[in-house]
Structures are given as structure tokens and as C-alpha cells.
């Protein structure tokens, strides 16, 4: 199918977790972006962004150089970098900010990159998938393309930390009371419902060090969401997806916590609203059964 003209083109960086553990997110992102006229160019030479909490703690210099190397590949292609992961987004936004505002650091980072015959000048921008949808493609365009509005669907929005904070660097929306993702959800015809722990972290980062803490945070988050009685949760990050979907299922199995709230990555709901067929296998990859919500939307 021919691309529709809008001219949006990005260097696509799915990130480790999406590529290896949750490829269904990648499928939904690719299909919905194509439908909305955006072209994604693959970047096979890239590596882990790198992960924002590990490498940075061990050696900041390494973290900066690996991230700058990935950014330099997008710059070489001549496109802004696009990622569906809040973690990659946080790393790239921060390193890009440092390179664009700190001449001394830029020189130091490029001294390292020289050893692998690369250079990053700081000419490109870093974009999250939902940011590109909101700012580049726009709500109006999305609205025009909707074939199956998400009528009578109540959604609990979870932004995730690194989509918004540190706000001084990210500068996407208010770090305490954001609205843009709620707007994107409502453009699809759904209703965004408020809940007390909306801005609370999913806790996913503690899975590798102290799972009990990660599960306790998750329980708190899900209890608060349950009170708002939504049809589903929407996320913009694979780690939040793993935590809210896969580990919600784990809590139910191990601790008989019966939340039973399906979780979607934003682009999956977008695909449903645009009447894009994701295939029979797609939603089977979710741990909390999503069939009922999907049926409700498809039948509308």
C-alpha cells in the first residue's frame, strides 16, 4: 500500500524490551504509524540505549558514549530518532540535552566516539511514539482516520516516569498533572478516568533488586486503578507493560489478588480504533485477557 503524504519520517529505535520480550508492541507501532502516513527507518547497527539506571550508576561516561553512538546513527541517516520505550526515551533525551547544552561534555563524548569512527553533532531530536502522535501527526489527523471509535470504553492512563521527568529536560508536559496522553485516549472516543495513584511509578525498576518492593508498589497502583473501575489501562512503556500486565497476572496467581484489568500499549488501542487487523495471535500475548475489551471495540 502506498504511503499517504505527510512527510513524517523517523529513525526507528524499538529498544531491547520491545524487540525481544514484547514484539507485539513493535507490530502495533509499525502498523499504526504506517496508516497515519509516517515512515519508520530501521537502525540495525544500534545497541541497548543503554538502560538508564544500570550503566549510568556504574560509569556515567560509558552511558553517555553508548547513547551518543546510537544517536549518531540516526543523525547519519538524517532523521529524528523515534522510540516506543520510556526508558530509551529518558536516556536519549537526557544525553541529547547534555550534548546540546554542554560544549565541554560534547567534546569529551566525541573523543570517545572517535575511537569507533563516529561523531555526534547534536543535530537531531528525540521523540517518543506518543509524542510524535500528539505533536507531529496531531489529534485532528488521528480523528479523521478513526473507523471504530472506542465508545463506552473507560481507560486508566499510566504515563510512566521517564515520559515526563525530569521535566526540566523532557519538557513534554506538566510532571505532576499531565494531560496530553489523556487527550490522545479521548481522541479515540474513549473516556480517561482519574485515579488517586495516577502519577505513581509502576515499580518495575525494582524487579531485579527487590521484587517484593516492586510487587507492593504494583499492588498499590492496581488497587487505586480498580477503584476507578476502568475497562483497561493504557501504557507507553514496555517495562510498565511487563509490570502492569505480566506481573498483575503473577500477583493474581500467587497471591489471589483479583484485579483482572487488561493493559494495552497506546498504539494497540490506536490500531483497534483505526480498524487495523493485528492478527489472531496478537492479543493472546497479553497475560491479562484482553478479549472482552477488544470484542467490545471491534463490534462497535
Amino acid at each position: 500500500m502506498a504511503e499517504r503524504e505527510t512527510g513524517h519520517k523517523y529513525a526507528f529505535f524499538p529498544g531491547c524490551l520491545v524487540t525481544t520480550r514484547l514484539p507485539y508492541i513493535e507490530a502495533a507501532v509499525r502498523k499504526s504509524m504506517r496508516r497515519l502516513g509516517a515512515e519508520l527507518v530501521d537502525m540495525p547497527e544500534t545497541t541497548c540505549c543503554p538502560e538508564p539506571t544500570l550503566t549510568k550508576a556504574l560509569n556515567q561516561k560509558t552511558w553517555l558514549a553508548i547513547a551518543a553512538r546510537n544517536l549518531s546513527i540516526a543523525e547519519e541517516i538524517g532523521l529524528d530518532i523515534l522510540t516506543p520505550c520510556n526508558g530509551c526515551y529518558g536516556t536519549f533525551k537526557t544525553v541529547n540535552y547534555i550534548i546540546k547544552t554542554n560544549e565541554k561534555e560534547r567534546v569529551k563524548i566525541n573523543d570517545t566516539l572517535k575511537k569507533v569512527n563516529r561523531e555526534y553533532k547534536g543535530k537531531i531530536q528525540v521523540k517518543h511514539v506518543v509524542e510524535a502522535l500528539y505533536k507531529d501527526i496531531g489529534k485532528e489527523r488521528i480523528k479523521k482516520e478513526i473507523q471504530k471509535p472506542l465508545k463506552n470504553i473507560k481507560i486508566a492512563v499510566h504515563y510512566g516516569c521517564h515520559l515526563l521527568r525530569p521535566s526540566e529536560i523532557i519538557q513534554l508536559d506538566d510532571p505532576e498533572q499531565p494531560t496530553f496522553l489523556d487527550e490522545l485516549v479521548e481522541v479515540l472516543g474513549a473516556k480517561s478516568v482519574d485515579y488517586e495513584r495516577k502519577m505513581m511509578c509502576c515499580g518495575g525498576e525494582d524487579l531485579k533488586i527487590h521484587p517484593q518492593t516492586a510487587y507492593s508498589i504494583l499492588k498499590e497502583k492496581l488497587s487505586s486503578i480498580k477503584e476507578a473501575d476502568p475497562d483497561c489501562i493504557v501504557v507507553t512503556c514496555p517495562l510498565c507493560m511487563i509490570q502492569l500486565d505480566e506481573n498483575q497476572a503473577l500477583l493474581q496467581r500467587r497471591h489471589r489478588q483479583n484485579f483482572n484489568i487488561p493493559v494495552f500499549y497506546y498504539s494497540e488501542l490506536l490500531c483497534l480504533a483505526l480498524n487495523i487487523n493485528l492478527g489472531d495471535q496478537h492479543f493472546k500475548l497479553h497475560r491479562i485477557k484482553a478479549d472482552e475489551v477488544v470484542k467490545k471495540i471491534v463490534k462497535s
Binding site: T20, T46, N59, T62, R118
Partner: peptide
């Protein structure tokens, strides 16, 4: 998934930056 052509450069960066 293509074989990771970036790994060699990444290893070099790990060495150069002292990690």
C-alpha cells in the same frame, strides 16, 4: 533480528571509557 553489528563498537567504548 539481525546479528548485532554494534556489539564490537560497544565493547570498544566500554574499554575506552574505563568501565
Amino acid at each position: 533480528i539481525e546479528t548485532e553489528t554494534g556489539v564490537e563498537e560497544l565493547k570498544k567504548i566500554i574499554k575506552e571509557t574505563g568501565l
